[in-house]
């Protein structure tokens, strides 16, 4: 391997590392950018629903980022937004039809939130802000980790609301993974009646608020630690 190739590879890895950090933490689409809140808050009443919508969103993000990046030099500025929207809408409709065909029950539950992925600003946001300006490989990594960041928030929030509100975790897993997954359900306390608030919409807002607060707390702690080490004031971008 020649030096220049090694150099190139190294810089690609540095890019990837930055993208991963941004997607999962620094610029998390749900916790920092606060994008896609409508489906996030509506569907996160249990972990499996969150996982279902998270995977669908992840898939659309990766594919739309890939396609947008691949055609970024073909479309002129004037028509780029309608083209991006056509790509995203097509991908979402494909996901919608495929889920309806092969995960029929889960599709019944997630219902209108699958077509609504089209209006998830995170997807058009990544297409416009990143994929349309970067190489395909980086766009794929960006789409994947932005999607994973969104998915983790959905599953954690869904799991939190399910445990508090219903006293279970991974209930209804069989809708996604088949009959054998019925045994995955974890019950906390046999006669637990559940805190209704957690399942209802206010529970989603409170839960998301707590998650954002936790993230900010972690970032502040990191800043404080850095300040102590260096003995100066530093600003951590978070």
């Amino acid at each position: 391997m020649s030096d220049s190739m090694a150099e190139q590879k190294k810089s690609a890895w540095q890019d990837y590392k930055l993208i991963i950090e941004n997607g999962l933490w620094k610029n998390n689409q749900a916790l920092v950018a606060l994008l896609g809140l409508c489906p996030l808050l509506a569907v996160s009443n249990n972990a499996i629903n969150g996982l279902g919508l998270g995977l669908a969103t992840l898939f659309v993000l990766v594919v739309s980022n890939t396609l947008v990046s691949a055609i970024r030099n073909l479309v002129s500025d004037e028509i780029r937004i309608p083209v991006f929207i056509a790509i995203i809408a097509t991908m979402v409709t494909i996901v919608d039809l495929t889920m309806n065909a092969y995960f029929h029950s889960l599709h019944g539950i997630l219902g209108i939130f699958i077509p609504l992925i089209v209006t998830n600003c995170a997807i058009l946001g990544r297409a416009e802000a990143y994929a349309s300006k970067n190489k395909v490989d980086r766009a794929i990594v960006d789409g994947f980790f932005m999607g994973i960041g969104f998915l983790i928030v959905l599953v954690v929030l869904g799991g939190m609301r399910e445990i508090i509100g219903n006293g279970t975790l991974f209930d209804q897993a069989h809708l996604m993974f088949g009959e054998s997954a019925k045994a995955w359900t974890i019950h906390f306390g046999k006669d637990y009646q559940g805190v209704l608030l957690a399942i209802l919409p206010p529970g989603a807002f409170i839960g998301l608020g707590l998650m954002i607060a936790f993230k900010n707390y972690m970032d502040q702690k990191k800043t404080a630690k850095l300040q102590n080490q260096l003995g100066i004031k530093v600003a951590v971008n978070g």
Binding site: I71, L74, V75, S76, I79, P82, V83, A86, I87, A89, T90, T93, I94, L97, T98, N100, A101, Y102, H104
Partner: peptide
């Protein structure tokens, strides 16, 4: 013209997926 081509590709793709999934649904 480019916009039309992109939309046409999208339509064809959707028709194919629809054709495949309709009986399964």
């Amino acid at each position: 013209g480019k916009l039309v081509i992109f939309v046409l590709i999208s339509i064809i793709l959707l028709l194919v997926v629809r054709f495949v999934t309709a009986p399964v649904i």
